[in-house]
Design a protein around this nucleic acid. Sequence first.
DNA 1: CTGAAAGCGCTTACAG
DNA 2: CTGAAAGCGCTTACAG
Lengths: 367, 367
Amino acid sequence: MSKRYLNLVSYFAEGVKIVVSDSNSRPATVVQRATIRDVAARAGVSVTTASRALNETGRMSDETRLRVQQVAKELDYRPNSMARGLVQQRSFTLGLLTDDTYGRFTLPVAAGLSSAMTDRGVSVFLSAGEKEPKRMQLNLRAMEEKRVDGLVITGKRIDRQLPVDVSKLGMPVVYVYSKCPQGSIGFVPDDFNAAKNATQHLINLGRRKIVHITGLSSFEAAHLRKAGWLEALDENGLAPFAEAIFGNWTEEHGYKTAYGLFESGADRPDAIFCGNDQIARGVVDAFAHMGIKVPDDIAIVGFDNWEVFAKATRPPLTTVDMGLTCLGKSAGLALLDMIEGKPIESGLRKLNCRLVVRQSCGGEASE
Amino acid sequence: MSKRYLNLVSYFAEGVKIVVSDSNSRPATVVQRATIRDVAARAGVSVTTASRALNETGRMSDETRLRVQQVAKELDYRPNSMARGLVQQRSFTLGLLTDDTYGRFTLPVAAGLSSAMTDRGVSVFLSAGEKEPKRMQLNLRAMEEKRVDGLVITGKRIDRQLPVDVSKLGMPVVYVYSKCPQGSIGFVPDDFNAAKNATQHLINLGRRKIVHITGLSSFEAAHLRKAGWLEALDENGLAPFAEAIFGNWTEEHGYKTAYGLFESGADRPDAIFCGNDQIARGVVDAFAHMGIKVPDDIAIVGFDNWEVFAKATRPPLTTVDMGLTCLGKSAGLALLDMIEGKPIESGLRKLNCRLVVRQSCGGEASE
DNA sequence: CTGAAAGCGCTTACAG
DNA sequence: CTGAAAGCGCTTACAG
């Protein structure tokens, strides 16, 4: 019972053939799809013509094209993209590599990428949850064998590379929210300007004594945000009320620091720009305990727009949205351009962030 | 300049050929990989033998096998899995479909799945971030064309189905953290027993007046957890201190409910089992404001082990870990069994959860 | 133990 | 406008 023969078995409703396998390593019941030969035969044309009709290429009478497409629909035809990929030397497939086991950054990026790629008919392989470099390399190899057309590499901070060797990969690579090697293409949020705008927002609301509480000084993002904060102050002729305060990216850091700031009876700030939403949450909680009113006594801005924090904080946080979804989408589109051989400049793209205004600064509140 | 000819162009260092394309829709510079023909030729064997040597099948002298494998390494050979897939009628590829835009549940599931599949040489396509059913269907279709061997469908609650028609898909499907249709295979956490164990934990610590504050009553999970709570009480001859309190799955619900519970000077509970970590966080915050000590005055258990909440709460939450990563892994392995035609029983699998003990209940604390 | 040949399901020069 | 044929890179009966 050859496969060729199986292909000729009578059709069921939607052109799907049910077949009993003779091999014991195969499913007992397998659904055999219609092939382009089936479509061509039933439409009374050659395979060549069927292919052209289905792909909207070549010239032919509308009648023929429509008939072929109609038959394809009747048979519930699905072109086999492995066959197509083999001849076109293109798999219409991308790989997404990440070391973010937590998902905080990866999922929005993945969603933006996946969604944009769907529109262009390309699918994306996910490699997540690998902690050891060897396993990550294994995954990369699997993607090579799958002949992905390109790779997007994403991480959990903009100043670290993934532990994979991508140098002699022979396929286009794009970096997102990850360190981007010289000569490559990368996408990151514009931390500097986001911080500057957030600070300017506070200044516009009349705040003058603006403190910056942020995360670990080993993170480049922390320094960029600090620089943006300083720049906004400077442009407005303001001196920093205090040095930027580095620490963990945690609620606890925000909480304790805010407490310390107000315990000393000294001069008090009227606003705090925080390096992330968790710190901001800690800060707000501290003030709640101390009976200090947000935003009346002090205004707070966060960073990340991690909604589960930003919205749960009382009052809800005004915070910077890094646009990770958009980052994923942009990276995918750039990758597609590279794959198609379009000329594209190397370097780091810093994409605009958006300040989401809620209630923690007073002024107008959008939510 | 035919492709065949390109294949014969001289080798670079690792057997990679750099080639200038003559077609304007192709990359200007493309890296051409070595094929099995190249390996066979260089090893002085037939393609058949090369294939068998590489796949560890057939009988041949160790010398031959090793020589072929050595050559493959020299040429940096990567088998083209599209070609292999075409002949084996198997893509070694899975699809992961989700409607969880938030990523709370999906990423752990995806990581567990992806990681387990890597070990078996299968890759997983991710479809995330689609809100409209039409777009999700589009994605599903793309996966059909990619000839995925199977599909895992995951969501954000166990009592809802995704808006896709999977009935006449003709490929194995497994459900994870999602409603599982009659006759299908599904994996969910064992909410009932997890809740029962969590409650038993409180009882073992000497608590007797245990309140249950949980999420929306429209969620099946809420009812299962409530039932587990009741069962544990019943087994210990305890009556519920109060009716289960449904509400939103939010901090605010926990906060307000906890406040209400203690404002009335009436009899007070000595423990609260919460339907998720956000509620628990709200509860703990309320007690902090009221000067009620956790765990001394009252013990708290959460649900989800969402670390960014559970660990940030003061004191850190004792909470149920649903084992989503394990769920993803188990689903993948089951799917592989189905794909390989192994007999497998339909129905819902309820996987064990794990109580993670921190400080919010007193007693021994592991972290 | 080893290899020539057919075939997986497509696309695409090439020829009519 | 249409089709026969070659070929993408593999695996696997089948035959020696």
